[in-house]
Computed example of a mutant assay.
Amino acid sequence: MDESGNINFLKKTSAEYFPRKEILDALPVHLRQLIQGLPSALWDSMEEIRLRTNQPLLVQSLNRDIFIYVNGETGTETSKAYVTSKADLEKTFQLVTDYSVYALEEDIKKGFITIRGGHRVGISGHTVMNGPAIKTIKDISGLNIRISRQKIGISDAYMEYITTSPNNFKNTLIISPPQCGKTTLLRDMIRNLSNGMIRKGFQGFKVGVVDERSEICGSYQGIPQNDVGIRTDILDACPKAEGIMMLIRSMSPQIIATDEIGKIEDVIAIEEALNAGVKVLTTVHGHSLEEVCRRPNLKPLMEQNIFERIIILSNHPRVGTVQSILDGRTRVSLLHPTGISRRCESIG
């Protein structure tokens, strides 16, 4: 592979919103003191903070586990790591829920809570069932603080591929392996589509977002913590299929955006949106177009060439690489007009 020209939007210089205080406020005082002194470079690349009962305190950065030592230093030796206690988990959970577990029961039984700033706290523990449904999670044994970062402007270079005239957006699918930046790219595309880009020749579209996992907009108490544009309407924590139909009936969107489609009901709802004249921007987990096309639920959409643009992300040579942008009908790379190429291009 020629790496001389890698499109790596996660490396692109952009306005980035990441206040440390929102993360630190979710931690007990002694854990806060351990973590707040971490090097700035580690804060800048930090993806997760992991707390597990009777296990080492660690952060994940650039897909590497880094242990937090009892003296506040970091390293890879588990013997020196601070061991998270049950009391640490209980106190952190109280702070995350703002001492109101009952008010957040609906979120808790889904396995995560969104805190101020759009950061998401994953929960593991003992699940309490009510018949076939999960009622809640108790005896919390693990918390995963997933750090949300918005990178303003990372989609600018790609808008010309998905908007070809002032009033024409092309149905777009982003294919990506886990943790390769697909939601980050999707979020910024939504912002650009909603706000409009005068230099690109369009004023802006009415965008409806079905944010089932609260990852796109990061809504906290109903208010999106991420900038998703001035013409955007959000259904937070709503199942995709139901949300798509709700938006069509009530908000007259020109574009509907969702993350991580895969269920047959998602596909049916997308077809309904297209039949109603609404365009679609969405993502799917996958390592290649071929893999996605083989999935039974997605096969009808792919065989009908519903998506006019297909953006493929990769973690090679590094996370955040745009491997290709394809014409959805011809499957020809728009980065390489002579045909599909596996080489990555550079945007500088």
Rank of each mutant, 00 (worst) to 15 (best):
E265L: 10
T97E: 00
Q60F: 10
G125R: 03
N8K: 07
M46N: 02
N71M: 15
R342F: 06
M159W: 00
M129V: 05
N315K: 09
F307V: 15
I145H: 04
I198W: 06
R295F: 04
S79D: 05
Y17A: 14
M246G: 10
T164E: 07
D259T: 11
Y158V: 00
R295M: 07
Q94E: 14
V128W: 01
N168C: 12
I256W: 13
V83R: 14
T127Y: 05
G328P: 08
S148Q: 00
V322N: 08
L335F: 08
S165H: 15
K109E: 01
C217T: 11
Q203N: 15
P39C: 04
V332Y: 09
I35V: 04
R318M: 15
V210L: 13
L10T: 03
L62G: 13
I35D: 00
I115W: 02
P337K: 07
I113R: 01
P177Q: 05
G262Y: 12
E308K: 12
V319A: 14
G131F: 00
G5W: 02
R309A: 03
R249H: 08
D65M: 14
K263P: 05
L274W: 04
L235C: 12
L24K: 02
I230D: 06
V128E: 01
S252Y: 06
I198R: 15
T53A: 07
Y102P: 06
T321H: 13
L281I: 08
P39D: 07
G201V: 04
T84V: 13
I306R: 14
T232E: 12
G72C: 12
V128F: 00
M246L: 12
G320R: 07
S79E: 10
P224H: 03
N144C: 05
E215P: 02
N168Y: 09
A87P: 04
K12W: 09
A15C: 05
I174S: 02
E303Q: 14
T136C: 02
E47C: 03
R213S: 13
I113C: 02
P177W: 08
R213D: 14
K80S: 11
L247R: 10
E16M: 06
N297S: 14
R295N: 04
S252P: 03
A133R: 09
C344T: 13
A269M: 13
D88R: 00
I234C: 09
L298E: 02
T13E: 11
P239Q: 11
E105A: 06
N226C: 07
W43N: 12
L185C: 01
G5M: 06
D2V: 14
E106D: 10
